[in-house]
């Protein structure tokens, strides 16, 4: 880490806090993936890592490289936007697929389909 020697102390502290917060949130989400009981509860756990977790790591990376190269490094925003837009889509698709499978199996834990539903959905 010799390249980081010229970083000011406040920046090193900020990057440290952001990195540990982000990694800690991601770990909390993964622990939730293990500990929570049903699938529908577990769907909530990874959102910790994909919202604030990766956001903190990206902020740390932006701050670090901007100060290291003394110019604005902003391309981490692309990952942030990508993750922000795609994670809800995948989780929604997965939750819907799971609901569909549970309904076919007649699982008691999920609400039954509404009478107007014909298996055709427009939103997705």
């Amino acid at each position: 880490m010799t390249h980081a020697a010229e970083l000011p102390a406040w920046a090193a502290l900020a990057v440290t806090v952001l990195l540990l917060l982000g990694a800690g949130l991601a770990l909390t989400g993964a622990v939730g993936l293990l500990r929570l009981q049903s699938f529908y509860e577990r769907v909530h756990a990874p959102t910790l890592g994909t919202t604030l977790g990766i956001g903190c790591v990206l902020l740390a990376s932006m701050l670090f490289f901007s100060l290291l190269q003394t110019r604005f490094i902003l391309h981490e925003i692309l990952i942030a936007v990508l993750v922000m837009v795609t994670t809800p889509v995948t989780l929604m698709l997965l939750a819907r697929a799971s609901l569909y499978r549970d309904r076919i199996e007649g699982n008691e834990a999920v609400p039954p389909p509404r009478r107007s539903q014909t298996g055709e959905n427009s939103n997705g």
Binding site: V43, T87, P88, L91, M92, R114, S116, N121, N123
Partner: peptide, 22 residues
């Protein structure tokens, strides 16, 4: 779509299904 993304992106709530008929 925006509502679905907001609700799913906040931890603790997940948008599961939408019935366009009603």
């Amino acid at each position: 779509a925006a509502l679905a993304c907001i609700l799913t992106a906040t931890p603790g709530t997940v948008w599961v299904d939408y019935d366009s008929a009603d």
